[in-house]
Design a protein around this nucleic acid. Structure first.
Lengths: 116, 116
DNA sequence: CTCGTAGTTTGACATCTGTCGTACTACGAT
DNA sequence: ATCGTAGTACGACAGATGTCAAACTACGAG
């Protein structure tokens, strides 16, 4: 029994490596903001294909990478799937209230445009 | 006495025209975030030249325009100067807590890198 | 009127960003 | 071993972005 391929893992910034500007930039894209909202609602692990994004597979990969590299989400492989989670505790520790106000803002903005 | 040249004014989005993604994008640039922080500290009107930005005059103009068009600041001419103010009440009404958490996050990040 | 100061405009430029299709790898199921 | 599904890698490409210098406009001071 050879050493198991260590389910090749991905580079994540450490908590201290998360930069505010990177987070804001990551959240400033509609597709990525949508992903983050879904992730916050689910409050669990979702694979990349659980999101029905209006972009191609390669673009999806790109957006998830931006989110991971900016420290907004963490990703890990399980089998053929890639599970995504919000790095809520890291974000809350570094930038208290930021994620919640962004999520609330996004929600109310959606309500404004759909409702009246 | 002819009608005074109406101190040519600038296009600002109305409160309802301010988009979350635009605000996040505007805040995700170091130069612009710096401007916003100074503006929040001063809590008053500052002319563009009150900031000692590490970029040229034309780039400065560009950044102030991005901030204005995204709804983060308002600008008005007074004589030869252009006065800038944070649109705090609009932002707080639309995205409660967002501006404060960004400002606090920026402050703590600065402290982390300079302090220890 | 003339000058200086504040900011704009224009055009250029390199880089970044979001997007795609196609070919590829990794893993689980059969 | 083979196949299908999940996701990646690699160009490619158009458009946005941050940057500058140089020429310009607008206003106040003298």
């Amino acid at each position: 029994m050879t050493i198991r391929t260590p389910t090749r893992d991905l580079d994540h910034p450490t908590r201290d490596g998360i930069r505010l500007e990177g987070v804001l930039h990551a959240l400033s894209d509609p597709v990525r903001l949508h992903v983050v909202r879904r992730l916050a609602d689910a409050d669990g692990e979702l694979s990349c294909s659980d999101f029905d994004l209006p972009v191609s597979k390669s673009t999806t990969t790109h957006h998830f990478r931006v989110l991971r590299e900016s420290g907004v989400i963490s990703q890990l492989y399980r089998g053929t799937a890639k599970l995504n989670t919000l790095r809520r505790s890291d974000l809350d520790a570094l930038f208290p209230g930021l994620l919640d106000s962004v999520l609330a803002g996004a929600r109310s903005e959606t309500d404004r445009s759909s409702g009246a």
